[in-house]
């Protein structure tokens, strides 16, 4: 399998479309014959990242690279940045607004799920400049 690259622009605050990029990646992985457990891991990790960008960062970009060895997901935004990454990584901690909670979000499981369902995760964040999260799921 040669390398496959997928790119998406995520619009901010558009909750009705949140999850479309993750859904598209999922269906492409299925077509490529990626194992169901891997597809599940990527779907969960990517959906949480996508939702985070919509809720907290006014959107951003998602770049997915699928190689023989691994699936790399790079989620970049120009949002407010994460003030305390350690705290944000705690299950149950959430800064989501009441409006967002009313939609069923704000469980405080976004980043913890991303960490749990990816094999490697790196967060680069600067206050006032934005956040880039890189996640990898290994295929071998």
């Amino acid at each position: 399998m040669s390398e496959v690259k997928l790119s998406y622009t995520i619009s901010g605050d558009d909750f009705t479309r949140a999850g479309e990029a993750s859904g598209d990646v999922k269906s492409k992985l299925k077509v490529l014959g990626v194992a169901p457990d891997i597809v599940r891991k990527v779907s969960i990790a990517l959906y949480e990242g996508e939702i985070n960008m919509v809720i907290h960062a006014h959107g951003g970009t998602i770049d997915v690279t699928i190689s023989e060895k691994e699936i790399t997901m790079v989620l970049a935004d120009h949002g407010p940045g994460i003030e305390n990454v350690e705290l944000a990584m705690q299950a149950g901690y959430s800064t989501a607004s009441e409006n967002v909670r009313a939609l069923g979000f704000g469980a405080g499981m976004g980043l913890p799920n991303m960490k749990k369902y990816s094999d490697d995760m790196n967060i680069e964040t600067r206050i006032g400049e934005g956040t880039t999260v890189t996640m990898k799921v290994f295929l071998q």
Partner: peptide
């Protein structure tokens, strides 16, 4: 669920 919006469907598709 009692959550009735588009995101419910996104999660349904992904799971």
């Amino acid at each position: 669920t009692v959550v009735s919006n588009m995101n419910t469907l996104a999660v349904a598709t992904l799971t």
